[in-house]
Amino acid sequence: MIDNAVTQTNETVNAGDIIVSTRGLCKSFVKDKPVLQGIDCDIRRGEQVVVIGPSGGGKSTFLRCLNMLETPSAGQIFFNGEEITAKGVNLDQVRARMGMVFQHFNLFPHFTVLKNITFAPVQLKLQTPEEAEKKAMDLLRRVGLEEKANAYPSQLSGGQKQRIAIVRALAMDPEVMLFDEPTSALDPEMVGEVLDLMKQLAEDGMTMVVVTHEMGFAREVADRILFIDQGIILEEGAPETFFGNPQMARTQEFLSKVL
């Protein structure tokens, strides 16, 4: 296992096609209890990657490392060919180009919906207040929530909150969207509206990395499935082969339980 952790420092990553990649990515929160034990992964522009696996296997940690919300213990992460695990990288600029959607939405409760969406782009001077507002309203119209622009998050349903959270990330014009179990905290009847929006995004060609337990979504939308367990990518492949003909015993066992 530990051998997987050896980093391949000199390997160059092609920036044109590959948008995010990891080499020997390791993370442990407590000593001697690694959560990630050496993950090598390339995510291509326009690709939809769905990450599945048992709880505690490291999926979320993997995703949260991609925008350095968690600092890896070892290994490298590249974004557009730039090593963002290197010292002195301006992570704020990197994160501004990677959208993230959380399980618990994490909308700002003291801002209106509109301000939730426009705050970051205006604050970071990526858009003028007028541009940001226009863009926000366009996006809200697209998800059918324009009448909620001046509402506060507490006045929204879970599904609406998550759609707003997705819009908030999209307003930054991200190059890749990271989804951390976006439907796990939702009431069942609200899962559909969020997944529909994510499918739309996928059809529009957004690069997406999605950690989820929604196997139907994975099968339908994913270009590639990553099965992460015990901190490594145990198996990966296109959904047809992955679901139709899983190779590893552990994968077969997992799929027999969830399908």
């Binding site: 919300l69 704020d92 994160r95 994490n106 700002f108 970051a120």
Partner: peptide
């Protein structure tokens, strides 16, 4: 985390 993930 949400604030930081937006690049703030």
């Amino acid at each position: 985390e949400a604030g930081r993930s937006l690049g703030l």
